[in-house]
Write a protein that binds this DNA or RNA. Sequence first.
DNA 1: ATATGTGCAAACTGTTTGCACACGA
DNA 2: TCGTGTGCAAACAGTTTGCACATAT
Lengths: 125, 125
Amino acid sequence: MRLTHQREEILSFLRSRRAHFNATEIYDAVRARIPNISLGTVYRNLGKLVEDGEIITVETENRSIYYDGYIAPHTHFVCNGCGHIYDFEDEEHSFKPIKDQGFTINKQRTVLYGICTECNKKNKK
Amino acid sequence: MRLTHQREEILSFLRSRRAHFNATEIYDAVRARIPNISLGTVYRNLGKLVEDGEIITVETENRSIYYDGYIAPHTHFVCNGCGHIYDFEDEEHSFKPIKDQGFTINKQRTVLYGICTECNKKNKK
DNA sequence: ATATGTGCAAACTGTTTGCACACGA
DNA sequence: TCGTGTGCAAACAGTTTGCACATAT
C-alpha cells in the first residue's frame, strides 16, 4: 500500500478525532487540507484502510456507513434523538457456544439504539 | 394499520421462514402469490411492519437491509464464505454502566462476522 | 520505470416518493 | 365513504468504477 498525501490525511484525520464520520464528512474535513481531493478518492482510500485493518466501519440503521479510527473492539450507541454515536466498553462475551460449534469469529459489532442522557434531559423539560 | 392482502403475505412469509431476507428476495417470494405486487409496496410495508414492531431489521456490512420475522433479541452471525446469516442466543449483557449514565436503550443489535462450520470444513479440504 | 493511486464524471444499487387509482373498515 | 394502501415510474442518496493522467517507490 502506497502512502499518498491523500491517504495520509484521511487516516490522520480519523485517528485524531475520537468520533465517527461518514464519507462526505471525511471528504469535507480533508478538503480543508487538500482542496482538490475527490470524493471517489476518499471512498477508495477508506476501502483500502478498512481492508488493511487501519480503520473500522460501523453499520447502523442510517443509510451511510461510518468510519472509525479507533479499532479496539467497543460498543456503539446511536442516539435516535440527536443522532450522535457514543462509544462504550464492550461487556464480556466469550461467544463460546458459537465457537464450540466450529464457527470462526473475525469481527464483532454491537450497536445500541435509544436516547442519550442529554436528549433525555431535554425531553423532560 | 389496515390489513391488506399484500401486507398479510409479506408478514406471513417472514414469519413462516426462520431466515433473513432482503427486500428483493421478499418481493420475489411474495410475487409467487401476488404476481402484480410492486417493489415499492414491499418496501412500504416492510417499513410499516418495522415501525409497528412486527418484524426487525438486520444491518450488516452488505449493502442491503435484511428483514427478520423473529423478533426476540438474538445475535446474528454473517458467514463471509457463503453469505448465510445464522441466529444465536444472546449472551447475558446488562448494559448497566450505560443505563446508569442516563441512556435509554430501545434496541440492541449484535452482528458477528467470520466463517461458519460448513465453510471451515470445505476450506480444510 | 511501473504499478498503484488520482480527479472527474458517469454509472450503479438499494431505497424512497409523487401520482392517480383501488380497496378495507 | 374516506383515509390508507397500491402499482408504476421517476427520483434520490450513497457508493463504485472507467478513463486518462499523475505520483510514490
